[in-house]
């Protein structure tokens, strides 16, 4: 049987999407309840262990999910080979930067 690479990517997009949806609902409710309008509460929210861990999961899911989505867009609309390669590399680079940046933000509080 052929290795199901395309299927795994299809699944990955859905699983990362679902993980982010759960995070959004969780954090959304916390924000609604705590209503952090001043710096102290806002900072405290991001300083807890679980929030950092959950946000890390969110960020990693986001990077993968966004990559799969943007790749799809590039395949459909950017046909010239050079432009396609350049944009693809730009997207990958940006996402890598965002991942590292997010982790720095989370762990330097």
């Amino acid at each position: 049987m052929v290795k199901s690479h395309a299927l795994r990517l299809w699944l990955a997009q859905r699983i990362t999407g679902a993980l982010m949806a759960i995070y959004a609902l969780m954090v959304g409710s916390v924000l609604y309840v705590q209503h952090p309008t001043e710096y102290g509460t806002w900072k405290a929210l991001f300083s807890t262990g679980w929030m950092r861990a959950a946000t890390l999961v969110f960020v990693l899911s986001l990077v993968w999910h966004a990559w799969l989505g943007m790749h799809d867009i590039l395949i459909d609309y950017v046909k010239p080979a050079l432009a396609h390669r350049i944009l693809k590399n730009l997207v990958v680079l940006s996402l890598a930067v965002y991942a590292v940046w997010s982790m720095r933000i989370l762990w330097s509080i």
């Binding site: 966004a66 989505g69 943007m70």
Partner: peptide, 9 residues
């Protein structure tokens, strides 16, 4: 999705 990606930074 594209908008969210572009405004991420």
């Amino acid at each position: 999705g594209a908008v969210l990606f572009l405004l991420l930074p």
